[in-house]
Amino acid sequence: MKAARFHISGTVQGVWFRASTCEQAQALGLRGYAKNLADGRVEVLAVGDTAGIDELAEWLRHGPPRAQVERVERSAAHPNEAGAEFGVR
């Protein structure tokens, strides 16, 4: 079980980024969350197999149609930080 944390910058709040990320992650069988941060970024924690996390990482580089992603930062995370499902916080 792998885990990764992503911080996504750009126009990523108010454009259905979290809900769309949740749909993508659930379709990939991942656990974790997507949440807005006070500084305007979105944080995503993804836990699952490497292929699923990598596929989500690629999707995060573009996001939903109204998003304008400027930067995606990826770092290691601990699998125990995720709940039983993927959700929006």
Rank of each mutant, 00 (worst) to 15 (best):
P79G: 06
G48R: 11
V42H: 09
R5P: 05
A57Y: 00
A67S: 14
E85W: 09
P65A: 07
G48Q: 10
E43F: 02
Q24T: 15
V12Q: 08
F86K: 04
N36G: 12
A4N: 07
K2N: 11
S75C: 09
H78G: 10
V42W: 04
S9L: 08
E23T: 12
T50N: 07
L60M: 11
A51D: 14
H7D: 01
V88N: 13
Q26S: 06
P65L: 00
P64H: 08
F17Y: 14
E70A: 09
A76Q: 13
L60D: 00
V47E: 00
S75V: 08
R41L: 00
A4L: 11
G10K: 04
W16V: 02
D54H: 11
W16D: 01
A84L: 09
V42I: 05
T11R: 15
G83T: 04
E55W: 00
G48H: 09
A82Q: 08
L37F: 04
E81Y: 10
H78C: 06
D49M: 04
L56P: 10
T11N: 03
A67K: 10
V88T: 15
G29P: 07
F6S: 07
L60G: 01
S20E: 12
Y33H: 15
R61K: 15
L37Q: 15
Q13A: 00
G52N: 13
A34Y: 07
G32N: 13
E85G: 00
A4H: 08
A3W: 12
V44G: 08
L60C: 09
Q26H: 03
G48M: 07
R31Q: 10
M1E: 02
G10V: 05
R5F: 01
G32I: 03
R74N: 05
R61S: 12
Q24C: 12
K2R: 12
Q13P: 06
G52P: 14
R41I: 00
I8V: 15
A51P: 06
L56K: 11
D54Q: 15
G52H: 11
A84H: 09
H7K: 11
K2H: 14
V44E: 01
K2C: 03
Q68E: 11
I53Y: 09
R41G: 02
D39M: 06
A3D: 08
S9C: 05
G87T: 13
A4D: 05
Q68I: 08
R31V: 00
A67H: 04
A25G: 12
D54Y: 04
R41T: 13
R71K: 14
R66L: 04
G40P: 06
A19L: 08
G29A: 10
S20A: 15
G87S: 14
F6I: 01
P79C: 07
M1T: 12
F17G: 06
K2L: 07
A3R: 13
N80S: 15
H7L: 14
A38D: 13
D54W: 02
T21V: 02
V12S: 07
P64T: 03
V69R: 14
M1S: 07
E43T: 09
A46G: 02
Q26I: 05
G40T: 06
A25H: 11
G40I: 01
A34H: 10
H78I: 08
F17V: 03
V72K: 08
C22F: 01
L56T: 04
R71T: 04
W16Q: 10
G63W: 01
R5H: 12
